[in-house]
Amino acid sequence: MEDARKSQLDTVQTIINQEMVRMNDFIYDGKQYAPEIKFSDAKNGNPKYTFGCDWNSGTGENYKNLIIFDLSVFKTTELPFIVHDSLIFKNIADLPIDKIMQLYVNSGKQVFISFDKHKAFTEYTAKTVYDTRVIELHSDGGELFGWSWAKKTENESGEVPSEDDEK
């Protein structure tokens, strides 16, 4: 049983790592190391894994690695969609984000991203986000339901109504 599990994990590890190398090479023109996932057993016999790049543990690198991992699993499985929040893009350099946008567009599957301040990125990324958007939200009436859940109503704001308001 353990040999079958190890064999399966070795296969999954190889497939994901090979895809992460392909995607990382696309993003960085083959000039940077790709993240790796390694499955093994802990001392107590339970399975464990390590992930990332031992040589770079910066925030931007970690978020880029997460995107590459997600896209690799996305491409090599039947997952129908992925979702990425704008937070993971903030510490990644602009040119890698352009390449990540290309990977999203060319995935052939649905990719949902929350992307704020798209004009803070390159023209390519801003245009890709704008051209492929399904919904665009903004304040002052452009919220999902036409109003902000975070804003207090006039009665909740703590303002004391004037005598004119009560008439």
Rank of each mutant, 00 (worst) to 15 (best):
M1I: 11
E2S: 08
E2M: 05
D3F: 10
A4E: 10
K6C: 04
Q8H: 12
L9T: 04
V12M: 09
V12R: 05
I16W: 05
I16P: 04
N17T: 01
N17C: 02
V21R: 12
N24W: 06
N24Q: 12
D25V: 05
D25N: 15
I27T: 05
I27F: 08
Y28I: 09
G30F: 09
G30Y: 15
K31M: 08
K31C: 01
Q32W: 08
Q32A: 13
A34H: 08
A34E: 06
P35Q: 10
I37R: 03
I37D: 01
I37W: 05
K38R: 10
D41H: 11
D41Y: 12
K48G: 01
W55M: 13
W55H: 11
W55Y: 14
T59R: 15
T59N: 14
G60P: 07
E61H: 09
E61S: 14
N62T: 14
N65R: 11
N65G: 15
L66M: 13
L66Q: 13
I68K: 01
F69R: 10
D70C: 13
F74G: 00
K75W: 02
T76K: 14
T77N: 04
L79N: 02
F89D: 08
K90V: 09
N91F: 15
I92C: 04
I92S: 02
D94T: 04
D94I: 14
P96Y: 11
P96N: 11
I97D: 01
D98E: 14
K99M: 13
Q102Y: 05
L103K: 03
N106G: 01
N106Y: 05
F112E: 03
F112K: 10
I113Y: 06
I113H: 03
S114C: 13
A120E: 09
F121W: 09
Y124H: 10
Y124N: 02
T125Q: 07
A126N: 14
T128S: 13
V129K: 08
D131K: 15
T132A: 05
R133E: 11
E136H: 14
H138M: 03
S139M: 07
S139G: 03
D140L: 07
G141K: 01
G142C: 02
G142R: 03
E143V: 02
L144G: 02
G146L: 11
S148M: 11
K151F: 10
K152Y: 09
T153Q: 05
E154P: 00
N155I: 10
G158Y: 07
V160K: 10
V160S: 03
D164N: 08
D164K: 14
D165G: 00
E166G: 00
